[in-house]
Design a protein around this nucleic acid. Sequence first.
RNA 1: GGAGGGGUGGCCGAGUGGUUGAAGGCGACGGUCUUGAAAAUCGUUUCUCCCGUAGCCCGGGAGACGUGAGUUCGAAUCUCACCCCCUCCGCCA
Length: 423
Amino acid sequence: MLDARFVRENIDIVKKALADRHYELSLDEFLKIEEQRRPLLRESEKLRNKRNVVSEEIGRLKAQKKDASKLIEEMKTVADKIKDFDENIKIIDENIIEFLLNVPNIPHESVPIGKDETENEEVRRWGKPRHFDFDPLNHWDIGEILDIIDFERASKIAGARFSIMKGLGARLERSLMNFMLDLNTSKGYKEVFPPIIVNRYSMIGTGQLPKFANELFAISGPEFYLVPTAEVSVTNIHRNEILSEKDLPIYYTAYTPCFRREAGSYGKDVRGLIRQHQFNKVELVKFVKPENSYDELESLTRDAEDILQKLELPYRVVALCSGDLGFSAAKTYDLEVWLPGQQKYREISSCSNFTDFQARRADIRFKREGKKGTEFVHTLNGSGLAIGRTVVAIIENYQNKDGSVVVPDVLRPFMGVEVISAR
RNA sequence: GGAGGGGUGGCCGAGUGGUUGAAGGCGACGGUCUUGAAAAUCGUUUCUCCCGUAGCCCGGGAGACGUGAGUUCGAAUCUCACCCCCUCCGCCA
């Protein structure tokens, strides 16, 4: 969320941000409502002040056993007036917040301007796509040959876009979680294992609600949601907290399942593990001081890249352009891994700086040593990595002609085998 | 699911209608004292918003004692609803 005062005082910046994002949103109504607020607030506070002064006087008179009925009579109407003002202010406040909750973050100046993913900027590449002397298969074909992935039975259990990992496939999934968590914790990220069902405040805190309800799986009765990413659970760990400066930066890593409706992606990636309703992911989350957040984004991205490098998977880093940037992010690097089955780089990690956008929604602040007041922290997160897509990348990049898959060196201690082969 | 108890400042803990933003203690910070430290002692110790040509320091004001509503001239104190925590019983992974 943006700060109301910031929007009021920096209309041009906000308008440019919206235009760069290709967002259709008029600020006129907001400005109209917002400027009604403060005069009303001033009136209300003036009356409250009067009430406080007179009530004190009444108390004094009563203590002296004097008559105060005249003053009390006079005050009766004041209470009603205050109530009127406050009701109006409350309605205005609700409108302001509702509006602001639907305004996206302002892109950082370094974000390339562009309309959609075709205008994202490649920042760097690592590794070279392997040369195959046979036609590489898709992971779903290999999965079938090796009998390690079962989509058909998964659809019987749950439906489309679900999968069953079997045998060494399941073990690969588990090995990757452990490998990634071990690597991340060795770099100072604290491992946490949070709830994966959250309340609406958490979803508002990180920006999934109110705007993107149709992308979430909701549980009714008591209102709950399945998390689409560990970002939600982990960032909200510190919701409504004031951290002290010496606590920062805070680094967390978490494995969670993730749940996404994928409404509106009909026809996209209908086969395979790329786009599932339920998938596993290890996430990196940071809470940092504002002045460090862009450096922290670089190091967060490097930490995610390191996982791909250790797995020896070729990838590239892409800076998302303004039109492709997520709602809450000020800047995002996507890591795209090479998939021989598709002859394409595909997203496997997304690393973002949310600046104070989530912190303001979730009210996560910190206090500087020896300074008055508080500031919002900056929050960041990135996949480190999406497990399902890593499985895809490993199967496709490490495949042999007979369909067997070589296990990357770093995973062998976890897997207990060097090759995944049929039978 | 049934029965009780409780939510106050960084922490502990007073406070049941009128200078209580909140006693007292602890902690923290600063001063005095001391060669230094401890002890002793004095002082300071929250956040949000509004106004002041003043986004930091300063002055004034409003608000915040789990959350929200209500009663009242006036509420941390009374009423109602909700949330959370704890104890016991039952049930269950």
